[in-house]
């Protein structure tokens, strides 16, 4: 080392003071990869969507919004995604509230992570068998409630013509036919897709809600209890306000997944009818008509719709508290 005390500060040290040094450079490969594989394709798709086959700037978008076969997909997708997201969330909250108190959560969470891990294609194949007309689900229903079912006779005795309601209470028959006369049609229609989205979406929603719930400092609830809040008030005044931001995020993530439904809409739904969702339209444009420009436009419309819903939900979130869910020190 030199013996002269130099007071000059090298560039390396000045950059280091800003947080840029050799370690920071480790981010570079990641950033390059994401730009090449994510940002660039997205921008390319956006550019491509304004270069339709007919040469006009907005040709694709005009086509999308004038062709009912295309623009109706938005409504159909929303008609699937919104009910599914709401159902999953409404069921997941009470279940998570209870499961959070359980000791053996891990068994349940492991079981629930199965459908997420197996993926929609496998769930579709399973559902085709299980919910099909010959499947176990319909068999159980028919055995229990069908015309020759175990419970049909007793039900008829109570609610049917000449039954207890009709004869004794003189209120008329409430049931004139068996509850189920044949196998329910649960696949290759709207219900099939809805069910598949619940099977993969409910565990996802539940696990997210559970993780947000366990993130709430239990001491806060105890504090509320010592101040005289019963279980109901604790839920209303402590848990719910702290959970709401997490619920908003959960809703968004669940919605995004349901909105982009693809394999199950094809395999379990009626892909040319009521479950012709927007991703099917995009896929067909790209890989059946080889119109990448239109496909990109549909993908962009899909992205914008998602963005609008997410912004609306997260915008509503800013109306509520969204700080840390711990007490005091984070």
């Amino acid at each position: 080392m030199s013996d002269t005390p130099s007071e000059h500060v090298p560039l390396r040290l000045r950059l280091a003071a800003k947080g840029i040094d050799g370690v920071t450079l480790l981010v570079l490969p990641l950033v390059v990869a994401l730009i090449l594989l994510f940002v660039y394709p997205f921008l390319y798709g956006l550019w491509l969507s304004f270069r339709p086959k007919d040469g006009s700037l907005l040709g694709n978008y005009a086509k999308f919004f004038s062709d009912p076969f295309l623009y109706e997909t938005v409504g159909k997708t929303l008609w699937l995604a919104i009910p599914v997201t709401v159902i999953n969330l409404v069921v997941a909250i009470p279940v998570a509230l209870r499961v959070r108190l359980m000791r053996r959560q891990r068994v349940l969470t492991t079981i629930l992570v199965l459908p997420i891990t197996l993926g929609t294609v496998l769930v579709a194949e399973g559902m085709l068998n299980y919910f099909g007309p010959q499947g176990w689900f319909n068999r159980v229903l028919l055995t229990a409630l069908g015309p020759q079912g175990w419970f049909n006779g007793p039900l008829m005795d109570v609610f049917g013509p000449h039954g207890w309601f009709d004869q004794t209470l003189m209120m008329g028959p409430l049931m004139t036919a068996p509850l189920i006369s044949g196998p329910l049609k649960l696949v290759h229609n709207y219900t099939g897709v809805l069910l598949s989205l619940v099977i993969t979406g409910f565990p996802f929603t539940f696990l997210l809600v559970l993780s947000y719930l366990t993130g709430i400092d239990p001491a806060l609830e105890k504090a509320a209890a010592t101040l005289g809040a019963g279980p109901g008030s604790r839920f209303r005044h402590i848990i719910m306000p702290l959970l709401l931001p997490g619920l908003a995020v959960t809703f968004c993530l669940g919605f995004v997944q349901a909105y982009s439904v693809f394999p199950s809409a094809v395999l379990l739904g009626a892909p040319s009818g009521p479950t012709r969702v927007i991703s099917i339209a995009a896929y067909e444009a790209a890989f059946e008509q080889y119109d990448y420009s239109l496909a990109s436009a549909i993908a962009m419309i899909m992205g914008v719709t998602l963005l609008l819903v997410v912004i609306a939900v997260l915008g509503a979130r800013t109306l509520v508290y969204r700080g840390p869910a711990g007490g005091g020190k984070g």
Partner: peptide, 22 residues
């Protein structure tokens, strides 16, 4: 940049990405 690919569904960015790859 890290959050977006996890939030945006694969089918949405997959179509432009597949186009670029082709």
């Amino acid at each position: 940049l890290l959050l977006l690919p996890l939030i945006i569904p694969p089918i949405t960015y997959g179509i432009p990405l597949a186009t670029v790859l082709y």
